[in-house]
Design a protein around this nucleic acid. Structure first.
Lengths: 345, 345
DNA sequence: ATTAGCACTCGTGCGATGAGATTGCCAAAA
DNA sequence: TTTTGGCAATCTCATCGCACGAGTGCTAAT
């Protein structure tokens, strides 16, 4: 739909209406806009324009004698055409930097936990972070460490410095020599491949080796757990309390639905990952959202990088969210995170 | 307080009252008890006894013309003297077993996730599980694996088969030989100690060695992250939606409080660990609870074992919870978990 | 010791009422 | 032609009052 030819006045009114609605959560009437935003127009004039906007499907009335509320398309137009990112205060910047970088040496998982926390806190929405997509990484080395009878610790390292460890179980005792052999075979045959590639071609590549068949079996059996990123990627969620307070979640039913979704994690995770493939900020508004439980929520996401591997962070909240602020915050946070992670390399 | 000398009738009425209150969440009156529980007594008689119970502080009226509600001490007496664990249905047993043991080879973390989930689901409360207290474990071996420029993966293995990995950072390049040396020194000097002991005495033990001072520094610096269990122990929480539905959480304020607590994790974690040191089920009721946010909740916890290391699982819900059922469930789950974990050893 | 009867106390739900907000539209003004 | 003032109409929401029902405590009878 071509909303580019909205008149200047229409844009202005839409903008003011949304700005005000975001603050108050109450339907906003012509009078408020006329007074508060001093546009030099009478309420009646504004009413006329509002009627037009309503016909275009950008705003709507909850009931006859109420003010107007933006529709999802209204928000869309706002976001696409009218959004001016709000600059961050330096206090906010400092807080983000501190939370992300403070405890040195704490591992990426902790850092991502902190990231979701800071996002939640300074946005007053739900802060979300997802760990890097391990399967994008290029294998740098594999180690096999015997830890106990029948237990072997597998360490997979990717070029960007990410490492992943999995405890494998073998039926019987394994000879150390066999293990070393296996290790070098694996390193030899899989070097330079991405973990995703490995996942798809592993069994072929292990065909003719001198390795212990037991070990090979173990590898094939645990294929999914070892190489599939989905199983190890983690979703951090912080700020559920912010959500509860919002008037749009007064309804208990809707609240439980979304909380269940958050506990489930994997649904949300794969959706968010599917979104933020590219660069920059991506905003998904209300019904644009394929997941039912968050049909009345918006997402602001961005991706961060650690080496060549990317991950996702973002914010979830009711469609009535302060987009201009959130865009800046998520963007700044994603950059800071990327920086923090590459420092460490 | 000596409540042992409650008369038979008083006990019976207290029991019935609590049973009924647990079901309905409504204050229960003399009439209901007389009719529904066919005690062969008239409401008036029951009223008299209820007055006595109220004087003893076991039950109370929310307001003049309402029925009675158990107080925290009431629940305490109920739990201590009247509780008959409700047997589990075989369907429940099967579900617990399946959830805990199904995906073989998935690591203890996944298993604990499943545990909290099954607890949440079949109790309809908040299911909780905490990973084993690593520091109780006895060191079985240490490995140092170079993964990238300036990054070393440290693998600490405990006797029971638990392993923990931490990515350490060193300022500059480390020679492989140095690393091997360090590794063997560590293994030699720390063998057979518990991780807790190591944590407290590490710097002493590394005094006079031939190792690279850089490496030693790294170890001392990262002391806390490596040996302190608190930092790596994880709390799994599942079933928040169950909580929201409960009428006692209709109040938004209380709900946000408790949700914040759940996100915080460490407070709850250290409290629960302090509780379930010993064997068997431990029940904490309402105001007995030191954490303010859950002053109106009860906990049913138990510990599980993996080798000699112990961990905690449990359930949180409003004080009005079906104790008899929960006791059985938590107990059975803890046992199943211990079994599942020792199978794997 | 138990019970029936009764007056009394409260919370809860329901309907009516009225204030307030906002719209749509029309005719007058710019 | 665009803007505005005026006005009737609509609909929500908070409040008030009221009657109902539930439950108690006490007393007198069993």
């Amino acid at each position: 739909m071509a909303f580019e030819n909205l008149s200047e006045r229409e844009r202005e009114i839409l903008q003011n209406l949304i700005d005000h609605y975001i603050l108050t959560a109450d339907p906003v009437g012509s009078r408020v806009i006329a007074n508060k935003y001093a546009m030099g127009l009478s309420p009646a004039t504004i009413r006329n324009t509002m009627q037009d906007l309503e016909e275009m499907g950008l705003i709507s009335q909850p009931h006859t004698s109420a003010g107007r509320v933006p529709t999802d398309t209204g928000y869309r137009v706002f976001v696409d055409m009218l959004l001016k990112p709000a600059p961050l205060s330096s206090a906010e910047k400092i807080k983000i930097q501190q939370m992300i970088s403070s405890p040195a040496n704490r591992g990426i998982d902790t850092i991502l936990g902190q990231t979701s926390k800071v996002l939640g806190e300074i946005t007053n929405q739900l802060g979300i972070s997802i760990s890097p997509r391990f399967e994008e990484g290029v294998l740098s080395g594999i180690d096999l460490i015997p830890v106990a009878e029948g237990k072997i610790l597998l360490v997979v390292t990717a070029k960007s410095g990410l490492a992943r460890t999995i405890l494998l179980e073998v039926e019987s005792k394994i000879d150390r020599v066999d293990l070393k052999l296996m290790e070098s075979v694996l390193n030899e045959r899989l070097a330079g491949l991405t973990l995703g590639q490995i996942k798809n071609t592993l069994s072929d590549r292990l065909n003719d080796t001198a390795c212990s068949p037991k070990l090979i079996k173990m590898f094939i059996d645990s294929e999914a757990e070892i190489w599939d990123g989905k199983l190890s990627e983690k979703l951090h969620v912080t700020g559920t309390d912010n959500l509860i307070i919002q008037p749009e979640f007064a309804d208990r039913e809707r609240l439980t639905d979304i909380i269940k979704l958050l506990e489930e994690k994997n649904v949300l995770q794969s959706f968010m990952e599917s979104k933020s493939t590219g660069e920059g900020i991506i905003i998904t508004i209300g019904s644009e959202n394929p997941i039912n439980e968050i049909r009345e929520c918006s997402l602001v996401t961005s991706s961060y990088k650690i080496g060549k591997i990317s991950g996702t962070i973002g914010v979830i909240g009711p469609t009535r969210m302060p987009y201009s602020k959130l865009v800046s915050i998520v963007q700044y946070t994603a950059r800071s995170l990327t920086d923090a992670l590459s420092d460490k390399k």
